[in-house]
């Protein structure tokens, strides 16, 4: 009966040699990779044979037929492929044969070409993240929120890690299997996946309330709280800076007011003609109510947006 096992692992692209070494070591102990994927490996147990493994990076392979034929002819069996263009190969190991026969790239020039393919893609990704960074930075300058600050930090971190990877891919001599690099690799995936999901969740949970309102009041709105007009309520799911744009144009001054859960006034403006842009409000988690009050009557037109 055949024995199998599955492992979950994280390897960064610039440390692909480490992945190869790990697969070779496991094969020497009888566990042979039979399916390689980005984050998981499947192994089969057979103590009688030993394989040597190699990884190849071929994103956007244009001639898959010629590719696999060339590898197959030299005894390479493909045992996996990742979504982003890494291919896993293995060859039965015979210690009497020269070492070079267990390498896919036998000269520095072609190895550089392979590393160069990764560098090219990583450079494009850095540029994409830098564009995101600049777009969010512009937004941050006009409306500084903690959410945007977290996004900026994430974009910068991702671009930084790719830059670090490019440096190592281009100067393989600088590579060393250090704990720092392992931690960095782990952190990178955590930030990339956790950060992206977290960001989308925060964005999705972010409330916004707006209103475009115009009416003729024949009766006044009194000062007593029981008779105020409630325009809206807004549910704030997490504490952050929120921004208010407000425009009042009325025949008489009117009181525009935002109250929190406890009934405390967070914002108030009593004007007949008023314009406010980008007013920063530090709001905690809770329900906020937006009221109009203390208006003697007449035409009232009001626009606001809070987000």
């Amino acid at each position: 009966m055949k024995k199998y096992k599955k492992t979950y692992n994280l390897y960064t692209a610039w440390n692909y040699e480490r992945e190869v070494e790990d697969m070779n070591r496991k094969s020497e102990r009888g566990w042979h990779l039979i399916r390689g994927k980005s984050f998981s490996h499947k192994y089969e147990y057979n103590p009688e044979v030993c394989y040597r493994y190699q990884l190849d990076y071929q994103p956007g392979l244009t001639e898959p037929g010629r590719y696999l034929e060339t590898y197959y002819e030299q005894g390479w069996e493909m045992v996996g492929k990742t979504f982003n263009g890494w291919y896993y190969f293995r060859k039965l190991y015979d210690p009497s044969r020269p070492k070079e026969q267990y390498k896919l790239y036998t000269d520095t020039e072609s190895l550089k070409e392979m590393n160069g393919r990764w560098v090219k893609i990583a450079t494009a990704l850095i540029l994409v993240y830098l564009v995101f960074f600049v777009i969010r930075l512009v937004h941050f300058i006009s409306r500084p929120t903690y959410m945007t600050a977290a996004q900026l930090a994430m974009f910068l971190f991702i671009a930084g890690v790719f830059a670090h990877g490019i440096l190592l891919m281009r100067n393989p001599k600088k590579k060393k299997t250090s704990v720092v690099d392992y931690v960095l690799g782990f952190l990178f995936f955590a930030v990339l996946i956790g950060g992206t999901i977290g960001n989308l969740m925060l964005l999705n949970k972010r409330p916004h309330s707006n209103c475009d309102f115009c009416a003729d009041y024949y009766m006044p709105i009194p000062k007593t709280q029981e008779e105020w007009v409630m325009l809206n309520t807004m549910e704030v799911k997490y504490s952050d800076n929120y921004f208010l744009d407000l425009k009042i144009s009325a025949e008489q001054p009117v009181n525009f007011q935002i109250l929190d859960d406890a009934g405390e006034t967070v914002y108030t403006a009593k004007e007949a003609d008023y314009m406010e842009k980008n007013c920063r409000l530090r709001l905690k988690k809770g329900t906020y109510r937006i009221y109009l009050s203390d208006f003697e009557g007449g035409r009232l037109s009001l626009t606001y947006s809070l987000e």
Partner: peptide
């Protein structure tokens, strides 16, 4: 690949990745 190894007396090996890239 075989002919290269024979000609060079085993000094020169052309791996599959190198072969695929060079021929391409």
């Amino acid at each position: 690949m075989q002919m290269t190894e024979k000609l060079s007396g085993g000094e020169v090996t052309i791996g599959s990745g190198t072969m695929y890239g060079a021929t391409g």
